[in-house]
């Protein structure tokens, strides 16, 4: 494995109970210092994959290397070198934020003097210093998520796994969480693998995205590549004058198919509208065609996602334990800090 790769999965497979294929021979690489997004519907195999990479689950077949360590043969070394922020809020509610971070340091066997120093820095980074000595049961959803991030970083990991870090949080808090994640990448040079349901977040913050469904990776690429893969931007324009002349000009300049929307409006798809449209303007100017209205619609991550995973609703059954945990997570995410608004 080259120095540039932080995670390399090879034919990673998990079969539950002998028949349920949760993850189906997936292979992918995550480069160092990259924010890698994992998207997919519920039950697609995201969490199972993360659990295998973080050594909580043993793969049925295949393996992966994380930081150069084999997840099957060297799970202890993998655990030492990674940080994990699970989907649930795992901090102990009866203890303070400070005590929780120290405890995780102890679980890693770090010397206390080091843990104290690092805990102070981390709580400062996630802006929890003021609330450090308050019991976690009083924290708001955003504060708890920030605490979880601090807990996941205590052992100076080089790779951080985040499972649904913004689930159930309000828009401002979600933006703040992503701000920390981006900061970790830039200031600490970390590699971050993240799953999320919020497609616009994946679009805005991830360097590359893998779309996974039914245990298989359907597509990997940068958000830009994935969106371009759909055939590009949709341009619709209304001309005052001859529609036929305009149509001919478009076909001539861009060689794309043009649809008539109504008597004066045309619509076509083009790979990159920002460079195509100026070229079209020149041609229209030359032949004296006037445009009265123009709109460009870029494809969204939602459309990419729908394209690969389909539009059917997923009525997935979860175990009562899982359902309980999901409800608990959402409930806590919505909680407000008693004194401040967030």
């Amino acid at each position: 494995m080259s120095d540039e790769v932080a995670i390399k999965a090879e034919e990673l497979t998990k079969v539950y109970g002998g028949s349920l294929l949760a993850v189906d021979h997936i292979s992918f690489e995550v480069k160092k210092n990259e924010i890698f997004g994992f998207l997919g519907p519920n039950g697609a195999g995201k969490s199972t994959t993360i659990n295998m990479l973080t050594t909580l689950l043993k793969p049925t077949e295949g393996t992966a290397r994380v930081n150069g360590f084999d997840i099957v043969k060297e799970p202890a070394k993998v655990r030492q070198s990674i940080g994990v922020v699970p989907q649930e809020y795992t901090a102990d509610e009866d203890l303070t934020g400070w005590e929780n971070v120290l405890m995780v340091g102890d679980l890693y066997g770090l010397p206390r003097s080091f843990t104290r120093q690092r805990a102070k820095e981390l709580l400062d980074m996630v802006e929890l210093t003021a609330a450090a000595n308050k019991k976690v049961e009083n924290y708001s959803g955003g504060m708890r998520r920030r605490l979880e991030i601090a807990m996941g970083l205590i052992n100076q990991p080089t790779v951080l796994f985040l499972d649904e870090p913004t689930l159930g949080l309000d828009v401002q808090t979600r933006a703040a969480i992503w701000h920390y994640i981006s900061k970790l990448r830039q200031e600490y040079g970390m590699t971050i693998m993240v799953t999320t349901h919020y497609l616009e977040e994946a679009d805005a913050y991830c360097d590359r995205i893998a779309i996974i469904d039914h245990g298989k990776i359907l597509k990997i690429g940068s958000p830009r590549e994935l969106k371009e893969g759909l055939g590009g931007d949709v341009v619709s324009l209304t001309v005052s004058g001859s529609v036929e002349a305009a149509k001919q000009a478009i076909v001539q300049v861009l060689s794309v198919d043009v649809d008539d929307v109504d008597q004066a409006t045309l619509r076509f798809k083009v790979r990159d509208a920002s460079t195509a449209v100026p070229r079209l303007f020149e041609a229209f100017n030359a032949s004296g065609i006037k445009i009265s209205k123009l709109s460009i619609t870029e494809p969204t991550m939602d459309e990419v996602y729908m394209e690969y995973t389909g539009r059917s609703l997923r009525d997935e059954e979860v175990s009562s334990e899982e359902a309980f945990r999901q409800r608990a997570t959402i409930r806590r995410a919505r909680k407000r800090w008693p004194s401040a608004s967030r």
Binding site: R79, P86, E88, Y108, N155, A328, T329
Partner: peptide
């Protein structure tokens, strides 16, 4: 601990 996810946190550490 299992229901609240704390157990999975402990298990992701090297303990």
């Amino acid at each position: 601990d299992r229901r609240l996810g704390f157990l999975s946190k402990i298990m992701s550490t090297s303990v």
